[in-house]
Structures are given as structure tokens and as C-alpha cells.
Amino acid sequence: MAAERGDYATYWRERAACLREDPDLFFPVGNGGLTPARIDEAKAVCGRCPVVEQCLELALKSGQADGVWGGTTESERRSMSRRAARPGSDAVTPAA
């Protein structure tokens, strides 16, 4: 087990709901790409995953461009990254 080796940074992956799923569900091979039905199916797996937050965090930090990660598509992750990069994106607007 990875945690016993002191590799906690990757231990969460061993608990991922997608571990026993076909990788093509999340990363389709060929010209078909991710269809809306496939995206919904992949996101359903993510929806029952106990480590979905860690997965999304990894995808955002490492700039994963392909597939479904942490219940998000590439375009959703791009939007999240753009919003986070805006000046003042974490700022709280005071009440008037």
C-alpha cells in the first residue's frame, strides 16, 4: 500500500471510483472524443467517488488537458483556471 511507503500524495488514487473502470470512459481513444453521453457516464462515476476533490485538484495543478478529471471536462477546468487567475477572484466584496 502506498501510504505504508510514506507516499501519501498518491495514496488517494487507490481509493478512486474510476480505478476499476475502463479508462476509455474518461479518455476515449480515436476520433469519437468525449460525447455528451460519455461525459455524463464518466461524471456519474466521479459523482460516487470518495476522492473527487483530490482528483480535481491534481488535474488543475498539473494542467490536465484531456479527459474527465474530478467530475469536470477540459473546458470546465479551463474555465475554473481562468476564474482563479483573475485578480481579486478570492476577494470578498464588502456589503455597502
Results as ranks from 00 to 15, higher is better:
Ala85Cys: 02
Ala16Glu: 05
Gln64Lys: 15
Asp7Gly: 02
Ala95Glu: 13
Gly32Thr: 12
Trp69Cys: 06
Leu58Tyr: 14
Pro28Ser: 09
Val45Lys: 04
Glu74Ala: 15
Ala85Ile: 01
Ser79Cys: 09
Gly88Thr: 00
Pro94Leu: 13
Gly32Trp: 05
Ala65Ser: 14
Pro94Arg: 13
Ser81Ala: 15
Asp66Val: 14
Ala85Pro: 01
Ser75Asn: 11
Met1Val: 07
Val68Thr: 03
Pro36Asp: 07
Met80Lys: 09
Thr73Tyr: 05
Ser62Arg: 14
Arg77Glu: 01
Val92Trp: 03
Arg86Phe: 05
Pro23Ile: 05
Thr10Ser: 11
Thr93Met: 04
Pro28Met: 09
Gln64Arg: 13
Ile39Ala: 12
Pro94Asp: 12
Glu74Asn: 13
Asp66Ser: 12
Ala65Arg: 15
Gln54Gly: 10
Gly30His: 01
Ala59Val: 04
Ala84Tyr: 01
Leu34Gln: 10
Met1Cys: 05
Pro50Met: 05
Gly70Ile: 06
Tyr8Arg: 11
Asp90Gly: 02
Asp22Glu: 15
Arg38Asn: 02
Glu74Ser: 15
Asp90Val: 00
Ala96Asn: 11
Gly63Thr: 06
Gly6Asp: 05
Asp66Ala: 15
Gly71Glu: 12
Val68Asn: 00
Pro28Asn: 07
Glu41Asn: 11
Ala37Lys: 08
Asp22Thr: 06
Ser79Gly: 11
Pro50His: 06
Arg38Ile: 03
Ala44Tyr: 01
Thr93Asn: 02
Asp90Ser: 04
Gly47Glu: 12
Gly32Pro: 04
Ala95Asn: 10
Ser79Val: 14
Lys43Phe: 12
Pro50Leu: 05
Cys46Tyr: 13
Thr93Phe: 04
Cys46Glu: 13
Glu4Thr: 09
Ala91Cys: 02
Glu4Met: 08
Cys46Ile: 14
Ala95Tyr: 10
Glu4Leu: 07
Ala44Ile: 02
Cys18Lys: 04
Glu21Pro: 03
Leu58Phe: 13
Ala9Ser: 10
Arg20Gly: 15
Trp12Gln: 12
Val92Lys: 00
Arg38Ser: 05
Arg38Tyr: 03
Thr73Cys: 08
Ala44Leu: 06
Met1His: 07
Met80Gln: 11
Lys61Ser: 13
